[in-house]
Design a protein around this nucleic acid. Structure first.
Length: 64
DNA sequence: TTAATTGT
DNA sequence: ACAATTAA
């Protein structure tokens, strides 16, 4: 199986306030039943080492 | 156990 | 309010 690395996402790093490109550690769908919901990624700030969550594009692949 | 994430 | 996820 060719393991393609996921592309970085442009997100606002809430710990620095800067917009950065980061590859999410994990991605999942967050949606109530019967509603559309959003995809969420778990990220780790390079600047501060702090974890944060942010929306990722709807077409971004989910990770296991 | 809670905070925080986004859009309906 | 509600969905899943996980660091703190």
């Amino acid at each position: 199986m060719s393991q393609k690395q996921l592309p970085p996402v442009k997100v606002r790093d809430p710990t620095t306030g800067k917009e950065v490109e980061l590859t999410p550690i994990k991605v999942w769908k967050l949606s109530p039943r019967g509603r559309r919901g959003v995809k969420i990624g778990l990220f780790k700030s390079q600047e501060t080492g702090k974890y944060f969550r942010a929306k990722v594009p709807d077409d971004y692949p989910e990770t296991g």
